[in-house]
Design a protein around this nucleic acid. Structure first.
Lengths: 138, 138
DNA sequence: AGATAAACAGGAACGATTACGATTACTAGT
DNA sequence: ACTAGTAATCGTAATCGTTCCTGTTTATCT
């Protein structure tokens, strides 16, 4: 997801173009990995020490709902990253050291043979955790 | 996992047999689904209104580390249930209404074709969420 | 430029979890 | 059974991530 695509989505839905949103999107655009609200805050505080967590969480939630960001839960915290595959369904290997991800095209739901008749499936989660090659070296 | 098996593990590791541990294990033994610390507390408070969260979390963590309980994170909260398959690797369908689970024998890691050479895999999570047949009816 | 609704800052509140010092209860050894 | 030693517990306070609230500011549209 590019910045232009993100702004196009926001403008379509009539969200305003604010300094804070620009800063948040720029940060995700430059950091291709899962980030916490605290990491976002620390970056934003460089320019704007009075930035509010309310602002950060409100925007992160909005972006996530619009499909601009992807969201997952790790160690009891929300983590966000720029949407990578233009809405195409995929899963991730997530590096537990640096947060970087690697796409996993294979979705286990496609090949699942288990009989779930009578069940109403709402969603699923498939993630692989470990160290990426760069972090393995250290 | 039966109560006897749980106590055998605890005794092997020299954990003491206390009233609180008996109550916690009995509760899990009678409730075959994922439970929160709060649900455990509410049950324990019937007999012992002064029960401390410290005691509950300490024991739940101990049981989880010993493989007596299984643990997962849902909606930002830790959930626990009695270990079901004697340590045999498996995954779960989890009912978002009642917390009951259904085992999924198929593990996506077995059939994963993606090339993760150079990566150090530490673990993975595969869960399917939805409504079980009983909850679909309501 | 003015109107208006969205977005924001600052701080308080919240829920889940953990930490702590003082007390109690289990277990082993006599 | 009694007692010492240590694990487990209680009660409470603190912590952490996240959300809520209220008054103020800002972006956008006329």
């Amino acid at each position: 997801m590019t910045l232009d695509e993100a702004w196009r989505i926001l403008q379509e839905r009539q969200f305003k173009r604010t300094k804070n949103r620009e800063t948040i999107l720029a940060f995700f655009s430059e950091n291709d990995r899962y980030l916490t609200a605290m990491e976002v805050r620390n970056f934003m505080a460089l320019d704007n020490p009075g930035i509010s967590f309310d602002t950060i969480y409100r925007n992160l939630t909005t972006f996530s709902e619009l499909g601009i960001l992807e969201e997952t839960e790790l160690y009891g915290e929300r983590h966000f990253r720029m949407q990578c595959d233009h809405g195409v369904h995929h899963h991730h290997f997530i590096c537990t050291a640096c947060g970087k991800t690697r796409n996993i095209a294979h979705c286990p739901m496609e090949s699942i043979s288990v009989n779930l008749q009578g069940y109403e499936v709402e969603g699923h989660k498939f993630e692989i955790y470990g160290k990426c090659p760069v972090c393995v070296e250290q």
